[in-house]
């Protein structure tokens, strides 16, 4: 295949219907921005999960009237639980001391809470904090156990919302990708029609099917690539103006993880690849199914 020939064909093709080419590039770009945003959000959510859940502890509060036999059983069960990394015992005295320290600004609360309201407890650290439910279920309702709590219920709600946003972005990205696909198909049909004299002669003088179709495929793939470049630009703008500016306080307070440049660069080849494949595939399918070349 002669590179000069293909380059010339592609260039005239893209130039000949500028508006369609632009539409093709922009739809692809929007689709890829959303896809990139989805991937970045997934990464963000993962990092946040690691950070937040690593501090999650399960606390097993003990019944006032726990017997020493029940206690021994509990300890041996805690030791044999595979999900548990380690655990520590806090006596009622220690717990009450900690309670008083925690609420030293509010003496009323301390006064209104008798010592026996603050139970002794096991503080349990988990191997995989996200699976805290396994552990809390295992010990809830055991003899001698008053109550099992984990400070992760709020996190669960937060991540449900974040995962929903991420999934939403990806769904919209897919819908946009379908739109991009249809637009590319349409553009290629028009391009094939406007170049029917050329392709007719090519077929007549014995150019192979691949030789006839290749410039169209390159044209669409190129549009996909340009779309991907625009999409990466879009993500960069999002970082600079949204993450680093609008959401700066949230990032600084540690609620959100900062979005690094290297994360955006890591997404770049994915978007480029998807853009190129999307374009080339749409073009090939169109040429095979709808255009007689």
């Amino acid at each position: 295949m002669r590179a000069g020939f293909v380059a010339r064909e592609v260039w005239t093709g893209l130039r000949r219907n500028v508006t369609m080419t632009l539409a093709m590039i922009l739809t692809t770009a929007i689709s890829l921005v959303l896809l990139g945003a989805g991937i970045l959000m997934a990464k963000q959510v993962d990092e946040m999960k690691n950070l937040y859940y690593s501090n999650v502890q399960v606390t097993i509060f003990l019944d006032q009237k726990i017997t020493s036999v029940q206690k021994t059983t509990l300890v041996s069960e805690l030791k044999s639980q595979p999900e548990i990394k380690n655990f520590s015992y806090e006596t009622q005295d220690q717990a009450y001391k900690r309670f008083k320290k925690l609420f030293q600004q509010n003496p009323d609360i301390i006064k209104g809470t008798p010592k026996n309201y603050i139970p002794a407890a096991y503080h349990v650290e988990l191997k995989n904090p996200e699976r805290y439910k396994l552990v809390s279920k295992a010990f809830d309702g055991k003899p001698g156990v008053f109550k099992v709590t984990a400070d992760a219920q709020v996190l669960d709600k937060l991540f449900t919302v974040l995962n929903g946003l991420r999934d939403g972005a990806i769904v919209v990205a897919i819908v946009q990708a379908v739109a991009a696909l249809l637009l590319i198909a349409n553009t290629i049909q028009i391009a094939a029609y406007t170049r029917r004299t050329e392709t007719g002669i090519m077929r007549l003088v014995g150019a192979s099917r691949w030789y006839v179709q290749f410039p169209f495929v390159v044209e669409a793939a190129l549009a996909g690539l340009i779309g991907a470049v625009l999409a990466v630009g879009g993500l960069a703008l999002t970082k600079v103006f949204f993450m680093d500016r609008t959401l700066r306080s949230l990032v600084n307070s540690g609620f959100l993880r900062p979005l690094h440049w290297h994360t955006i660069w890591a997404v770049t080849p994915i978007l480029g690849g998807v853009g190129i494949v999307l374009g080339a595939l749409a073009a090939l399918l169109t040429l095979r199914l709808y255009v007689r070349l």
Binding site: R2, I201, V205, S208, V212
Partner: peptide
């Protein structure tokens, strides 16, 4: 030339 280019003849 077009007729030769598209069947891959060398320049």
């Amino acid at each position: 030339s077009f007729a030769l280019e598209v069947i891959g003849k060398p320049r």
